[in-house]
Design a protein around this nucleic acid. Structure first.
Lengths: 247, 247
DNA sequence: CGTAGTCTTGAAACTAGTCAATGTTCGTGG
DNA sequence: CCACGAACATTGACTAGTTTCAAGACTACG
């Protein structure tokens, strides 16, 4: 099932999570012009400085957005999963201010930027949902500033694991207490602003405390409430629909 | 001149920086319903958990957005100046995920959230400008993640000073090489994820290197190019109009 | 079965944090 | 107009958390 018949279905699901859409709105989103492509692991989708003409929807797989510092260091500023519009930011602003790269093999749907703007203003509900989607991204970014700026390594990593628990659960990839995270410890390090070595020690101490059980890329959270406590995690900033919060 | 006759003029100026607006669009923005209020230094505008009904425009003065960690630490996630919509985020999303507080005495215009949504979808150019404005904020947030996550103290602080040089210049508050920054070193520390003591030493070493000359709250940048070099600063992420970039 | 990438571990070095005291600035009221 | 107090800035000595360097072990894949 490499090419699904309705590649934009994950986008509809995502937008519905944020804002109600009429059947016509949903149909309009599904019939947006798009080109579906299979991308390999590690492939760049957008590079800083590009002037993109399309936005990219993650149909399946993972992508990251990152910035490279002057000294070569990398900071991952977001991780994207199925249903995420990976570069509304880069597409609507004239010039890309950061890189987008696949984390795994990925199925992507490219939508012309003009089509996005069209639907956003011809169908206010869709426009509002898209806008809210970008606002939620902003909210996550703010939480990451706080995570990286004001929390110690243990709290920081625990927080990230909690965030993935909620986000992956929300889109039906894995359960809150058990999911696959296709990131190396080096990539986690570049996400939380630590070194790979220290991430390794930190993950180990979460395991040692009985909070998580890891093997390879699989994460099992033994006690989400306790991990959230350690990770200073409250899910408000994800702005998920109530069902997920209640779980 | 406490109450200007057209309190929303700074908003028009700001939106024009991002996206062209017709005379009618400008007039429509200026005539948005708003309540102007004088706020004192340190006053909260929105608290995490609030369900705001209005968005707040900074007419004059400064405001900060911040988050409080479980251990009481604070992280400032943005600083706002005249023309900034301080909480489109908080207003459009159901529940505020962070706090907004005045940094100085401030003149604020409160606009009902419904009016914002109305104009955004009845006047696509205004809507696009507002959306782009939130995207630029997101871009700044991503840069801050990188700043706090992957740069050392000297680079971090230098970067912040460069950002203010550009942002304040862009709205006509001070010049790039000389501006007033109404923040204590403690507030700067909470912005860049350091301690006040270390910020003090870092600022001092920027001064000692001849890059800046500070006295009280005034910042003089002796050589912006060199400070940008030290601060690993490139202004793309601010998405300013070309004139400012060329300066 | 070998190789590349990733993970793990230890020891030493360093950046930034903590604690605590002193100095400075500025607004206020006598 | 000066004295006082509060908030803020500055400095030093010490500590802690994280990084760096380096080596070895595991895993997956061809």
């Amino acid at each position: 099932m490499l090419f699904s018949s309705e590649p934009l279905a994950p986008l509809v699901r995502k937008l519905l999570n944020i804002h109600p859409l009429s059947p016509e709105d949903r149909a309009a989103v599904l019939s947006l012009p798009s080109i579906v492509r299979q991308l390999e692991h590690g492939q760049y989708i957008v590079r800083e400085g590009d002037v993109p003409t399309h936005s990219c929807l993650v149909v399946s797989g993972f992508a990251i957005r990152h910035k490279i510092m002057g000294d070569g260091a990398r900071q991952i500023v977001n991780v994207h999963v199925a249903g995420d519009m990976v570069d509304l930011q880069n597409s609507l602003l004239k010039v890309a201010d950061h890189n987008v790269q696949t984390l795994t093999a990925m199925e992507a749907a490219f939508i012309p930027r003009a089509a996005i703007l069209d639907i956003a203003f011809s169908r206010p509900a869709v426009g509002k949902a898209l806008w809210l989607e970008t606002l939620v991204e902003g909210s996550i970014a703010r939480e990451w500033i706080a995570n990286v700026g004001r929390r110690n390594s243990l709290t920081r990593v625990a927080h990230l694991l909690c965030e993935f628990a909620y986000r992956l659960d929300a889109v039906g990839i894995g359960k809150q207490c058990n999911y696959e995270l296709p990131m190396t410890q080096e990539q986690i390090a570049d996400t939380v602003g630590l070194t790979p070595v220290h991430v390794n020690r930190t993950l180990k101490s979460l395991d040692a405390a009985g909070l998580t059980t890891r093997s390879r890329r699989s994460v099992v959270i033994n006690d989400l409430a306790r991990l959230a406590e350690v990770g200073d995690f409250r899910s408000i900033y994800l702005h998920l629909p109530q069902e997920s919060l209640a779980a």
